[in-house]
Amino acid sequence: MTRWTASLPMYNVTPEHAAWWRSLLSDSLAIVARASDLGDITIGNAPAGELMSHWRRKDLLLSQTCGYPYRMLGLANDVHLIATPIFDAPGCEGPRYRSVIVVSAQAWKRGAKTLEACRGLRAACNGADSHSGMNALRHAVAPLARDGRFFASVLWTGSHAATLRALTSGAAEVGAIDCVTFALLHDSHLAPFDGVQTIGMTASAPGLPLIASRALGEEQADVLRDALDAALAADPERARKLRLRGFARLAGEAYAEIETFANTAAQYGYTELR
């Protein structure tokens, strides 16, 4: 019997959000199980630090990735693009999103109220393979960089929440946060993010895609897409808590914009966030 695994690792910003995402996933897969004979399905947790290998699993029924590994690191060659969520958050337009550019309270008081005024500050970034934290910020900074440099240093934090903590602790002064993550964290009223100031947003790009292994057939992929729509509609309150309005069915080529961000920065000679 075929066995499948599924997880939604990208927007579990609090334990409560993780539970709501797991509930949505469970309901979606229950609909899939009734509509298609796929065999056993296990809802698991994506291993921290090993997401690329997780996303390339042959038995992956559903997960969520970032547009950067999907387009720039070859993941598109290994997976089905199932859908792109549509969120209700400042910075989102349909299935597109932006990054919120933020500075620490101390940097704000010293006059860092525009991106250009952030020259020479200490940046924080969740990861080098992140569109929202790295690629979008690199694209925004590139026209302002001099000799391939803009920031005094870059601290790699591992997550957007950790980037915000770095700003509040004084370990860094500026960063870019996925606008959906930023909105969900604000909803949770977490005190450690008090004092962080928004100074702008990056250009928009297609949101974080839901993916499945290419071992899944095309008809089964369509069943999965329909199941996501049905599960979302079945619980409006859960959708509200997740700021989730729907799912768009984009073509994979829509994510070429992610590469355009990188290419534009390279034209300015700014190939690394620094």
Rank of each mutant, 00 (worst) to 15 (best):
I31R: 07
R98L: 03
A48F: 00
P85G: 09
S28T: 05
H17C: 13
L75D: 00
I41P: 13
D37H: 14
W21Q: 13
V103S: 09
N45I: 02
G74D: 08
L75I: 03
D37F: 13
P85N: 11
Y68H: 07
T114C: 04
C92L: 07
M52I: 01
R56S: 02
T42Q: 02
V13H: 05
I82Y: 10
A107Y: 09
P9T: 02
P15V: 01
W20S: 02
E50N: 09
R57W: 00
K58C: 06
S104P: 11
T42D: 01
A89S: 09
R71I: 00
V102D: 06
Q64D: 06
S104G: 07
M52P: 04
E93W: 05
G67Q: 00
Y11R: 09
R71D: 08
A19C: 10
A33E: 15
Y11E: 10
Y68V: 03
A35Q: 15
P95G: 13
I101K: 03
A46K: 10
S23P: 03
A35N: 14
K113C: 11
R22V: 05
S53I: 02
S63E: 04
V32M: 02
L51N: 08
W55G: 01
S28C: 13
W108P: 02
I31E: 06
S104L: 03
P69F: 00
I41S: 13
M52W: 01
H17Q: 15
Q106R: 12
G91K: 06
A112C: 09
G111S: 11
A83E: 15
S104A: 05
H54C: 04
D37K: 15
A35I: 02
M72R: 10
I43H: 01
G67R: 01
H17N: 14
A46F: 06
H17F: 14
